[in-house]
Computed example of a mutant assay.
Amino acid sequence: MSLKNLLKNERVAFILEDLEKRYPNPPIPLDHKDPYTLLVAVLLSAQCTDERVNQVTPKLWQLADNPFDMALKDVEDIQAIIRPCGLSPQKSKAIKRLSEILVTEHNGVVPEDMALLETLPGVGHKTAGVVMAQAFGVPSFPVDTHIHRLAQRWGLTNGKNVEQTEKDLKRLFPKERWNDLHLQIIYYGREFCTARGCHGLVCPICTTCYPNRKHPKVIKKP
């Protein structure tokens, strides 16, 4: 006798409970000391691992760890340090320019405002969401490609794009859990439900939610 696949509300309840047990106090993976250094670290993490960013940022903070000092540095000097993170020409220009804007328009303070953050060079919706959640504690649910993948495997979204996935997850999960869930799902994906290691058939959450699943879950890429 085969087990039944869980209904969506059952999946949501199980995922909340399971992730809270596994990662009760999920740490912020990017090393930082204030909203500005977090903003730059998140910008650097685009198409780069958090581990690599954490290896690079100590040297970058030696060059400049605040917008006033960073705005005065040459793009070439910034790029030389962040090159291991990839996309260094674009990222170095963005770091210098956003630092200049923070100084001239925000008195050197990272704005606690999603819309204003998204106007800064190199800062997209996901980056702004991470800063709002992790620097300011404002409920946010930034969705990257990894969360997008797991949300599809767990039947929580139809997977059209990361924007739709974010809306679906915000609808399903309580607002007070969004910030922790964002991190918990990332940590779970790295440990159990990797891009090539699960396909919806192997990890504890996938097999509990879909015990009858016989074929790999085809993921719609954003």
Rank of each mutant, 00 (worst) to 15 (best):
R83W: 04
P84T: 00
G86D: 12
G86M: 15
S88C: 11
S92H: 06
K93W: 02
A94P: 01
K96Y: 14
R97Y: 11
R97N: 08
L98Q: 00
S99M: 08
E100C: 12
E105G: 06
E105I: 13
N107L: 09
N107Y: 13
G108Q: 04
V110N: 03
P111S: 11
P111M: 13
D113G: 09
L120T: 02
G124N: 04
G124L: 02
K126F: 11
M132G: 13
G137K: 14
V143A: 06
V143T: 04
D144M: 03
T145H: 07
T145Y: 10
I147T: 01
I147D: 00
R149N: 11
Q152P: 02
R153N: 02
G155V: 04
L156K: 05
G159T: 03
E163G: 15
Q164F: 14
T165Q: 01
T165P: 01
E166H: 04
E166S: 07
L169P: 04
F173E: 08
K175P: 05
E176H: 14
R177T: 15
W178G: 04
N179P: 08
N179A: 11
H182V: 14
H182Y: 15
L183M: 13
L183E: 02
Q184S: 11
Y187C: 10
Y188I: 06
Y188L: 12
G189I: 00
E191F: 03
H199E: 10
G200V: 03
G200S: 09
L201V: 13
I205A: 06
T207S: 09
